[in-house]
Amino acid sequence: MLRKVPNYSANIDNLMKYLLYELKVRNMDISKTLMIKLIFKIKKELGKDYELYPQLPYYWYFYGPLSQPIADSFNYFSNALQHTAPSRVLLKDEYLNDFESNEFISKYPEIEPITTTLLKNDQKFYKNIKKDIYKEYAPFTIMYPFKFDIFDIADTLRSGEQFNSDKFIKNIFKCEAKLPCEDYYTRYNNLFSKFVTNLDFINEENNFNACWEFLRDPIKDLWRTFVKGVRVEFKDDYYTYKESSWNREYINSLDELSITINETNNLVHLNNNNNPDFLKLEYIKAMSNISLYRKYDYIL
């Protein structure tokens, strides 16, 4: 049975107006993703007992805490914003007076000093807020190193020669030791361990660099599947109605991940002089049972 969810859009919109104004007077542009992170940080600083806390609903996903109502509010004010970069915006001059007149902050004065502290150093804000949120608030300790030391490398670096492979493998072993113990993640944990074993064998055969192009997708799939499970468990009550469908997506993702991880067996003990063309041919044959071009449901 669906529970009726109160409409918090007015408070979210007023908070959005306040923050857009504060950013404007500091000449700090912002993206939708950064705004969502900023409001998450404010929510956490206010604390669970604060009136606004449940009115700012979040869930954890691919790139940290997300909120659809807050994203909707940001989009709602799009006409009042000017682009300063492809994904950055700043309040237009003609809206400055309108956004300054905001009784919302008088009702919730605790937000003002928190905001001032967070925006005091603009370079620190831009550079650190995403990592700080993972360090302070991620549901599991594995999430910070998994995201920044494993997933980000696989997501951005096209060659295994661009980073220290031995350090990378040590980091992924450290992540394995931090996998959650809950039964909900048992199947996932087994798949993770199987992949790490294969990765270790590939490295021992000195094939890590040659295989890197074909290891990137399984590594990224490991992260995406994991956070689909995290999303089911770590969400505010606002999203309870989505739990069944989100759980189904997690289970389906586990099925796909199982195929992907099993196919990495074919990268172990390849010995044709580490020839990349040979490895590519073998990998394509190994992956013929699944689509290499699956579409992921990225959000924001």
Rank of each mutant, 00 (worst) to 15 (best):
L56R: 04
K48D: 14
E112Y: 10
K92W: 05
I12S: 07
E205K: 10
P113G: 06
P69L: 04
D217F: 12
T84Y: 00
L38H: 10
Y283W: 15
Y238C: 03
S87R: 05
R88K: 07
Y283N: 15
N198E: 10
R88V: 02
K285Y: 03
E94K: 11
D200C: 02
L279F: 13
S31V: 07
T141G: 00
Q123R: 13
N206Y: 03
A71G: 06
S193C: 06
P86L: 00
E100V: 03
F99Q: 10
N171R: 13
L292M: 07
D13R: 14
K174G: 01
L52Q: 13
T260R: 09
D277A: 09
I299D: 06
Y63W: 12
Y58D: 04
Y185V: 02
E161Y: 04
S31C: 10
P113H: 03
I30H: 09
D122G: 07
L90K: 09
E182S: 03
N209T: 09
Y53W: 13
E256R: 11
I114S: 13
K17I: 04
F62Y: 15
P276K: 00
V25M: 06
K135A: 10
Y95G: 07
K178V: 00
I39N: 08
T264K: 03
T141A: 05
E51P: 05
N189H: 06
V25C: 02
E176C: 00
D221E: 14
N209S: 05
F74L: 04
L19D: 02
E282H: 11
L118W: 10
I105G: 09
K220Q: 15
K120M: 12
K280R: 13
F62M: 06
L179D: 05
R294S: 15
L157Y: 15
I150S: 09
K48S: 11
I172T: 15
R248V: 13
N190E: 14
I172C: 14
P218K: 07
P65V: 04
I202C: 02
F104G: 09
A286M: 11
R88I: 00
W223N: 14
N27Y: 03
Y53M: 12
K135M: 07
I290T: 11
D149K: 12
P139L: 01
S87K: 12
Y18G: 01
N121A: 11
D236I: 09
I142A: 01
W212N: 06
F168W: 04
A80I: 04
Y21Q: 05
N207P: 06
N289C: 01
K32R: 04
Y50F: 13
H269E: 14
N7H: 01
E94N: 08
M143Y: 04
N189V: 06
A80K: 08
I36G: 13
T186Y: 08
S31Y: 02
E243C: 01
F208V: 00
I129L: 12
Y144I: 07
L91M: 02
C181Y: 15
D217R: 14
A80C: 11
N266T: 03
F148A: 11
L118C: 11
F62E: 08
S193T: 08
T141D: 09
V232L: 09
D166L: 04
